[in-house]
């Protein structure tokens, strides 16, 4: 009892320090977003004003331009949406049963399989671009939705499998055994007993996979083209050798970020849980 009383001033100080550290982090993270947000309402002249102006007459011209004009990014948002949704859907369809098998079934070569799944994550993406390019070129997959989606799967699947394994491992064995004794069989046990308990994990994994694919740039810029041009690539077009159209770029960036921010806020609680899953138990697995 006395020890808690003794540590109380220390705890308060620690909280203050933590708060300051968090504030600095938020500032560092939020400033570019905030500045981009302001810039998206500026005219190009205000953007380049020196010293930078904080108070200006806001305009919606930039948004009008990136949505309706020649440089409309709406087709690109659609392109992003298609690739991201396809990749996410297929990833989850395969990752959930795969992770369950890896977490639960006794099978031969499980460790080896697990290692190879993980090994695909060890390669630097840049090292894969040229092989991927050549492969897609040979099979006619360059600048097609199926081609790009397939490439996205190559990194989203292992990631999703490894994340989902930790969730499946958290479900007590006995619960599964109880269901087996209740004559549920493997598939119905999975459906009625296991999956409902990893719902949170499925949500988190889906969001992570979606965000990763949505934010992907490197593969999209090299392997895409006029047909498949996600918004990340389209935004890059506002940067050219002669000039960077900061205002338009900012407006496009705000539009591209919108779904990410909405999802992030909506799923905040789940995401934090997802980041700390396995922190207590089996933390080394991922």
């Amino acid at each position: 009892m006395s020890s808690t009383r003794l540590t109380r001033p220390g705890a308060a100080l620690r909280r203050l320090l933590m708060f300051c550290a968090a504030a600095v982090l938020v500032l560092v993270w939020a400033f570019p977003v905030f500045w981009g947000f302001l810039t998206s309402f500026k005219t190009e002249r205000d953007v380049l004003a020196w010293p930078p102006v904080l108070f200006f007459t806001p305009t919606l011209d930039n948004y009008r331009a990136v949505m309706q004009g020649n440089s409309s990014i709406l087709p690109n948002l659609w392109s992003s949406f298609v690739v991201t949704s396809l990749a996410t859907l297929i990833t989850m369809l395969f990752a959930v049963p795969a992770a369950y098998a890896m977490a639960r079934l006794r099978m031969r070569l499980k460790r080896t399989t697990g290692f190879y799944v993980l090994a695909t994550q060890m390669l630097p993406p840049v090292g894969l671009i040229i092989p991927y390019y050549i492969v897609l070129q040979k099979i006619g997959g360059l600048d097609t939705y199926s081609g790009i989606t397939a490439i996205y799967l190559s990194f989203s699947l292992p990631f999703a499998i490894w994340l989902m394994i930790t969730y499946f491992e958290d479900v007590p064995f006995e619960m599964e055994e109880a269901a087996l004794l209740d004559r549920a069989g493997r598939m119905r046990t999975l459906w009625y007993v296991i999956l409902p308990q990893v719902r949170g994990g499925i949500a988190v994994t889906t969001i992570f996979v979606f965000l990763n694919a949505w934010n992907e740039f490197l593969f999209a810029v090299v392997l895409g083209g006029n047909t498949v041009r996600p918004v990340t690539v389209a935004m890059y077009n506002f940067i050219s050798v002669e000039q960077t159209q900061w205002a338009l770029l900012s407006a496009a960036a705000m539009l591209a970020m919108a779904p990410v921010i909405v999802i992030g806020l909506a799923a905040q609680r789940h995401i934090v849980k997802g980041l700390t899953v396995g922190a207590v138990k089996g933390g080394g697995r991922r």
């Binding site: 006995e174 619960m175 055994e177 109880a178 004794l181 209740d182 009625y192």
Partner: peptide
């Protein structure tokens, strides 16, 4: 056969 587990294993 039916079993009652130590942890009860309720769903």
């Amino acid at each position: 056969v039916a079993m009652v587990f130590q942890s009860y294993a309720l769903y």
